[in-house]
Design a protein around this nucleic acid. Sequence first.
DNA 1: ATAACATGGTTGACACATCAACCACAAGGT
DNA 2: ACCTTGTGGTTGATGTGTCAACCATGTTAT
Lengths: 165, 165
Amino acid sequence: MCQPCYTPIMNKKMISEEEMQVWHMWKSSYKNIFGRVVKDMSEQTGLSEGDFGILDRLDLYGKGKLRQQEIADSMDWTKSRLSHHLTRMEKRGLVLREPLLTERGVEVIITSAGKSALDDARPVVSMAIREHFLDFLTEQDIESITNLAKKTKEKSSSACKSPPS
Amino acid sequence: MCQPCYTPIMNKKMISEEEMQVWHMWKSSYKNIFGRVVKDMSEQTGLSEGDFGILDRLDLYGKGKLRQQEIADSMDWTKSRLSHHLTRMEKRGLVLREPLLTERGVEVIITSAGKSALDDARPVVSMAIREHFLDFLTEQDIESITNLAKKTKEKSSSACKSPPS
DNA sequence: ATAACATGGTTGACACATCAACCACAAGGT
DNA sequence: ACCTTGTGGTTGATGTGTCAACCATGTTAT
């Protein structure tokens, strides 16, 4: 009469009520805060988080243009996700897509409408992050966030992503 | 020649590079950890986070059955979102819906398939949360999480949700 | 009794995300 | 030459979320 065994060797015991509470608190903090920031941005500028991330990268890293794959890599998005999203953004006039002539691939170009939406959004995002997030943090909290980020960073399958070269 | 003014009174200055880093670290920690937990659950049991939350409530709070509105309230979901989700779950045989006879409303009932999916999922979820989240936390981290949760809790528009009665 | 409102739920349209299948074009290896 | 393999990108199906409109049935006010 043994329980189904999901963990390889031993039965680690189930987590406690208090531990589950920590998990729930963490989740709901994130959802509250993140939701407020995104809501401010989308209500005041009409951009979603994805829109902003893409436009931001085009503007900062690419002076207005980047290849799709570069965007996808830097955002950690699949090419499929990006392709779908760009289709919608193109329809709204925020970006253009043009096939590269010299090599394979597609170049994404920010339009003037895209650029001005981005310029409008920057201060809004900035304020929202301060108001809904930074203002709540103590020095200790920042330390915790930094540590947790380090400890949980990718470490994708124990191999290195870019060749040692 | 003044900038567009998004904040009522004064110009709080834009946030710094380091502050933006904290924001990004926080976001990516969440997305990494949460993504891993959800991935474990969905790969090993076929349930999404929403599925699990609903089944869990049916089982614990309602001994197998609850009214839709009760579920929606306790999950902080809109009735629309829940209705759509239940339609999909019903199609998969995890729950049933039956109109209440005595009063208005619909009762959601967990099926045996739903119950066994839930029982299978509990230990998986438990282990995943431990492995991908709890194991990384120090006492200090837990304190930070608790504090942040308190500080950012709902406080819905400075009014009280339930009437003072 | 009737009008006004609140409650419980459904629906359709659309944005967003993932997955698998596909297409086109490069190399490289035989 | 031909066949594999990898890369860059698209597409369709489906699951997930949100919003606004809707419907039916209660409750309350006039």
